[in-house]
């Protein structure tokens, strides 16, 4: 069950509205807007596939989002499962 720390880059016009839209995703946790156009967020997903899907979905569906850039991905649990 990967957890990813990401930077969601916005166009900087209406960050509040972007944040609001992000609230709708139940496995996205936001940690504030930084430097004008960067939202720190955490994705908590069931699988890496879902993680990727979520990033794509946000890029495509949320207005004002320029891109989703993962900065940190934790796969520990997935790796343990693989080992077992």
């Amino acid at each position: 069950m990967p957890i990813a720390g990401v930077i969601i880059q916005t166009d900087g016009n209406d960050n509040g509205q972007v944040l609001e839209q992000l609230q709708a995703f139940k496995n996205v946790y936001t940690y504030g807007v930084h430097k004008g156009n960067s939202i720190v967020a955490v994705f908590d997903c069931e699988s890496s596939k879902e993680l990727k899907g979520l990033a794509d979905q946000i890029t495509e569906q949320v207005q004002g989002v320029m891109g989703v850039y993962p900065a940190y991905v934790n796969y520990e649990d997935e790796m343990e499962q693989a080992q077992e």
Binding site: M1, G5, Y31, G32, H34, K35, V40, A71, N74, E76
Partner: peptide, 26 residues
């Protein structure tokens, strides 16, 4: 796996992401 642990990883992930743009999350 405990809820605490997952929360911990989440805050780590957020801290790491923030660090990548030079921000320290309180």
């Amino acid at each position: 796996m405990t809820v605490n642990r997952r929360d911990f990883i989440k805050s780590t992930a957020a801290a790491m992401a923030a660090a990548s743009i030079g921000v320290t999350l309180p």
